[in-house]
Design a binder for these strands. Structure first.
Lengths: 215, 215
DNA sequence: ATGCCAAAAGGTATTTTTTCCTGTCCTCGA
DNA sequence: TCGAGGACAGGAAAAAATACCTTTTGGCAT
């Protein structure tokens, strides 16, 4: 959120990030060296003083920082661990039912016009996701030989999720979670020709959710 | 980057996002309805006028938007197609058949040990990919309601690929490409209960390959 | 065509932020 | 220790943004 307190904290954090004092940062940006003094963050009557957007633009440029970095400082209290620098991937998003209506695609099939949302692709949102490549036909029709499954060990799992399961005996399989209760886990096969399977919790080493699959 | 032009564009985009005019947005935020008039974005002497940081905080709060959303508008030119971020995402990759062998996962199910390759996730490497969200059950068992399909219009398409097709009559559908020959295209339904469909090339406006699906 | 209301252009007064300036304190090197 | 320069507090003037207000324009319904 954008608050008076957070904006000033971000300015302090940005200055520190570039080994500057608040007054040094102001000077570097071509502003008066007293511009960011703590003594000037509230006006005489106690009303919060907000630095102008123009001043913010100047300090971001003067430090060769970026708007993203500055926003991270706004959002993360200085004492907290700075969020990792990873950039979230965003692509335009549209509901399938709307896709047939006019105006969403140009003649060549590229997104066009208004009405597109943006969606972030979470596959790389954590440092711990990994990929498994399908081998064989046992997971048809869902997954074909060569398809790549992105698995996120930390993701929350609910009934109906597609998961990778490793048993204590060393078997690794991709299934749909039917039920997870105390002491037992029920899995539906991705291939309808294969039967449901049940395991006691003690037989399961870990369960991890499949979050994306290549096509 | 934070520039005068982009900040105003973001305000316009935010207003449009919430089906407001610029003056409606200002009013909603408790500001004067003329605050964001285009006529007031340059002062009389032509100097750029920057909206104050406090005003931005107010519009973000009044729309229940977020700083992240606002920054997206700052960075994405409104008139341009929303862009995918170009990143090379790499995750560890292992063949499914190897996954059961010892040494590839630690006790909690995270990748461990040697033998992992790295795979780049190509979907986000291009600027033209977009996402379609599945609605309804017509694409079961492959795609469930709410699943997100990443579509890459420029990707090469071969027999057996899962594709999105738009017909000249405006129908958009997800299918498996069975055959594409001169003058005709044959599509197998993702739902086995639905019949194959054939189109003349002239009936098809575009075909684009589905490259990833959420799970 | 007319009426109503919102959006937008335009102008002035008020408020808020920056700039300019001064003084004090702190740090560091000679 | 002393001096220089930077950091910081504080005050007044100048510049810039908002608030207030009016008029014009545009869109929509009747």
């Amino acid at each position: 959120m954008l608050s008076h307190e957070r904006v000033w904290a971000a300015i302090d954090a940005l200055a520190e990030r570039y080994s500057l004092s608040a007054s040094g940062l102001a000077k570097k940006a071509g502003l008066d060296s007293t511009a960011f003094n703590k003594s000037k963050r509230l006006s005489v009557d106690g009303r919060p003083r907000w630095p102008s957007t123009e001043s913010l633009a100047k300090i971001i440029e003067a430090t060769n920082s970026s708007l993203e970095e500055f926003i991270q400082f706004v959002e993360a209290p200085k004492s907290a661990r700075p969020r990792s620098r990873e950039i979230q991937a965003r692509v335009p998003l549209l509901g399938f039912a709307q896709a047939g209506a006019g105006g969403f695609f140009d003649d060549a099939g590229f997104p066009a016009g208004e009405g597109w949302d943006l969606i972030e692709l979470p596959a790389r949102a954590t440092e711990t996701s990994y990929a498994l490549q399908v081998q064989g036909d046992s997971m048809l029709p869902l997954y074909r030989n060569g398809d790549v499954l992105i698995v996120e060990p930390g993701a929350a799992i609910r009934k109906g999720d597609r998961v990778v399961v490793k048993t204590v005996s060393g078997e690794v399989m991709a299934k749909v979670l039917e039920r997870q209760a105390q002491g037992a886990i029920e899995l539906v096969s991705l291939n309808p020709e294969h039967p449901k399977r049940q395991f006691k919790s003690a037989e399961v080493e870990w369960v991890a959710r499949i979050v994306w699959a290549s096509q």
